[in-house]
Structures are given as structure tokens and as C-alpha cells.
């Protein structure tokens, strides 16, 4: 299963590192990353593959959300299908 992770919040050091470490720890493979910083506001979207992960998408979502809170960020994990269907005919 593939999912989209969205990270938003004030830019600080180590956002990508922390998110990636958490994902690696859960055996989640990162397929694509896109990131921008606008007026100190950090936005990142990631496409990840959960095929080999031992945890469910909801568990990973919860872990990342908790990690986000410690860094003052909002991190959301959603299954990729929703975005595919909404924007592609």
C-alpha cells in the first residue's frame, strides 16, 4: 500500500532527518519527496510504500503525528488512492 505523508509547520533543523528516521525504523520505503520553504513555513509531501512495513497505516500515521507534535509540526499520513482519484479521470 502506498501513502502520502504531508508535513507542514515552521521550518527547523532536522525535520526531514527525523521523519525519515522514523520511517526507516518502521521499514517504510520512501519513493518520492517534494519540499518547499515559503517565508519560514515548511511544506513537504512524501510518497511512501508500506508494503514491507510490519505496522498498519493507522499506526504509522499515529507515530508520525506524535513525532510532529514534539517538533511543532503537523504530520499527516493518508492512503494515496484519495489523491489519485480526486485529480485523475
Amino acid at each position: 500500500m502506498k501513502a502520502i505523508i504531508t508535513v507542514t509547520g515552521k521550518d527547523t533543523t532536522g525535520i526531514i532527518a527525523n521523519v525519515c528516521t522514523s520511517l526507516a525504523g518502521n521499514n517504510v520505503n520512501i519513493l518520492d519527496i517534494s519540499q518547499t520553504v515559503m517565508q519560514e513555513y515548511f511544506t513537504m509531501t512524501m510518497l511512501v510504500d508500506l508494503e514491507k512495513s510490519t505496522k498498519s497505516v493507522t499506526e504509522i500515521s499515529q507515530e508520525l503525528e506524535d513525532l510532529g507534535k514534539t517538533m511543532g509540526l503537523v504530520i499527516r499520513t493518508q492512503r494515496e488512492d484519495i489523491f489519485d482519484l480526486m485529480y485523475r479521470v
Binding site: 502520502i4 504531508t6 519513493l31 518520492d32 517534494s34 518547499t36 511544506t43 509531501t45 510518497l47 499527516r76 494515496e80 484519495i82 489523491f83 489519485d84 480526486m86 485529480y87
Partner: peptide
């Protein structure tokens, strides 16, 4: 991957 703008628009 999906367009970043589309993803952000959906969240909005």
C-alpha cells in the same frame, strides 16, 4: 507522485 499543490489543496 501527485502534484504537491493538489495534495495541499485537498488538505485545505
Amino acid at each position: 507522485m501527485n502534484n504537491m499543490q493538489d495534495i495541499i489543496a485537498t488538505l485545505d
